[in-house]
């Protein structure tokens, strides 16, 4: 009995966003179907994986995470290079030192670090602020200026602080991460506000504020699925690619932090699995860029993506 393959006729597609420049430029998005359903439509670009670095020595990292970056943890540029050696598609620089409680580094200071890192690598750079709206509003435009022309991805812009960040991105030729708290309508609204400032729609990446595995992952899973179906049905304000800030969520979980126990098994294996499983589940919901911390997570996620990019035999 020949089974007729069931295909949805989607009317539209995800937006395609280009990041970085030169031979290592990366494109994400552009799909005309749900994740990895090659029998139904095109997936011109595979999801990509970034490794996350910090402008300050990380505190409280388990040994098996900090040891893979031994010798470079205090030097963001060297750390970024190490990430490229490990095979990162992009590097995400987290400006944690700009946080008012963690050094309150000045915008100029932060911009200088970002410029150093950008000069050290040829893959696209993501720069993440400290998460305090007012501070990011001051820091990121400065960073945008220092990185002008490098086509980086800067964020996160929220409902509260998007104006100055988006203005900085427009002036410096960067893409922006639009971040909203686990709510598809708020995400859409922020995208509208940003495009009203005349940033092109293909210069926006959505951060849906994911939860880690076991910590609200299902909310992000469904919001991302709804964004993808929305995009495929023609909603231009949900059609932007999605970034998954996995590392910060996965590594703060109890499951990643608890040492070896008879009940939960080996910590190293468990923590990496936590990071990998959070990323891959959300990639299967429709995520495009996963930001992770452990190079082994990077390797496993990329291997899985490579398998999934092979067409189905129908």
């Amino acid at each position: 009995m020949a089974v007729t393959i069931a295909k949805e006729r989607w009317s539209s597609k995800c937006l395609e966003v280009a990041l970085g420049s030169g031979p290592k430029q990366i494109k994400v998005g552009g799909e005309t179907t749900l994740p990895f359903l090659h029998f139904e439509g095109e997936t011109p670009n595979a999801p990509v994986v970034a490794l996350e670095i910090f402008d300050a020595q990380p505190q409280e990292w388990p040994d098996f995470l900090s040891s893979v970056y031994e010798g470079v943890l205090g030097d963001p540029a060297a750390w970024a290079k190490k990430c490229v050696e490990y095979g990162a598609d992009l590097v995400a620089l987290h400006l944690s030192r700009t946080h008012p409680d963690q050094g309150d580094a000045s915008p100029e200071d932060a911009a200088a670090v970002a410029a150093d890192v950008a000069a050290a690598i040829d893959v696209p750079l993501i720069v993440l602020g400290c998460g305090v709206d007012e501070k990011d509003a001051a820091v990121l435009p400065e960073v945008a200026n220092a990185l002008a022309g490098k086509n980086c991805l800067l964020g996160c812009a929220s409902q509260e602080n998007y104006k100055s960040i988006v203005a900085g991105c427009i002036a410096g030729g960067h893409a922006v991460i639009a971040s909203s708290p686990l709510d598809i309508n708020l995400a859409k609204q922020l995208n509208i506000l940003i495009t009203e400032m005349n940033l092109e729609t293909d210069r926006i990446i959505i951060d849906p504020s994911i939860g880690g595995l076991g910590y609200g992952l299902e909310y992000a899973y469904s919001i991302i699925e709804r964004m993808r179906t929305g995009a495929l049905m023609g909603d231009k304000m949900l059609a932007m690619p999605v970034v998954l800030l996995v590392g910060q969520e996965a590594w703060k979980t109890k499951e990643a932090k608890t040492p070896d126990t008879p009940d939960w098994g080996e910590q190293r294996k468990r923590a990496i699995l936590w990071e990998v499983a959070t990323a891959t589940s959300l990639i299967h919901a429709g995520g495009h860029i996963a930001v992770v911390r452990h190079p082994e997570s990077l390797k496993h996620i990329k291997e899985h993506i490579a398998k999934m990019m092979k067409p189905q035999a129908y």
């Binding site: 992952l217 098994g265 936590w274 499983a277």
Partner: peptide, 13 residues
């Protein structure tokens, strides 16, 4: 157990 824990958690989610 380190392999099963993430799976039962994902299933729950």
């Amino acid at each position: 157990r380190a392999e099963i824990l993430p799976l039962v958690t994902l299933r729950l989610n």
